[in-house]
Every structure is written in C-alpha cells, then in structure tokens.
C-alpha cells in the first residue's frame, strides 16, 4: 500500500478448497488479498505434524507474492511443534525478504504454545486483522 493509491482494485478471497474453513477438516487455510501488497491468511483447526507442511507452503506462497502478510490464528485449536516451526520459518523468511509478517492470535491454545516455547518475542502481533493492515500502510 504505497503512496500512490491504486484505483479500486478487486479484493479477492480465495479458499484453498471450498470446504477448507469448516470444522470437519483438520486444518482450514484461507487467504484474502488486500490490494497488490497485502494478504490475510486465516488458519483454523489443528496445526500439527500432519497439517503443518500445508501451512508452511501456504505461507511461503503468500510471502513471495505480497509485502505484508497477516496470519490470523484465532481459529487454531492446536499448535504443535511442527506448526510453530512453520510459523517461525515464515517469520525468518519475511525478515530476510523484508516483508512484514503479522500474527493475530486470541486462541488460548496457540498463545500458550508461543509462550511456553518462548517463541512469542520473535513475532510481531497485532490485536486485529484490520489493525495489522492499518499499521502496515
């Protein structure tokens, strides 16, 4: 979101699969584009060794395409070591490539995972997705 305001571009919302954000699935990943520069990734469900590779490649794709990536973890029911690793690596990638990676997280379980493993301080948090987008302008 540079200084030159783009004309009204389309705000696209892509689902990884049509049912990806519903409870029957172990993990739900969804991305919404906010202009050419920002993407919001919504993660739901259980991020464990089975599902973390999906998250890792998903985040990688978003970070190579957008300058600002917001990861909304509010719907996360489990965040294991593999999931933490995926987030951590995405964060490292963002730092190397000078991208902004924001986490939005009000899931008790995900917050506990980040705290207990002392990884919390590595990440940048925003209270809400709109806050993260606003702060990235």
């Amino acid at each position: 979101m540079g200084l030159t305001r783009p004309a009204l571009y389309g705000a696209r919302v892509d689902s990884e699969s049509p049912a990806a954000d519903f409870p029957a699935d172990i993990i739900g990943l969804q991305v919404a584009e906010h202009g050419p520069d920002a993407r919001v990734v919504t993660v739901r469900g259980e991020v464990d060794t089975l599902t973390a590779p999906k998250l890792a490649s998903f985040l990688h794709t978003q970070l190579s395409a957008a300058r600002v990536v917001v990861v909304d973890l509010d719907g996360v029911d489990f965040l294991g070591s593999a999931g933490l690793s995926a987030l951590f690596e995405a964060n490292e990638l963002a730092a190397r490539e000078r991208r902004a990676l924001w986490l939005v997280c009000h899931s008790r379980i995900a917050n506990r995972a980040l705290e207990a493993t002392e990884l919390r301080d590595h990440f940048t948090f925003a209270d809400t997705v709109p806050d993260a987008l606003k702060n990235s302008v």
Partner: peptide, 19 residues
C-alpha cells in the same frame, strides 16, 4: 490448564519425533 496444554503439545511432539 497451561500444564494440560503443555503436556498435550509435548506428547504430540515426542510422538512425531518417534514416528
């Protein structure tokens, strides 16, 4: 409740390592 969560994550992690 934190210790419950921690044990859940620890068991997940150690099982994944062994698998």
């Amino acid at each position: 409740l934190d210790s419950i969560d921690d044990l859940r994550m620890a068991v997940d992690d150690l099982c994944a390592m062994l698998v």
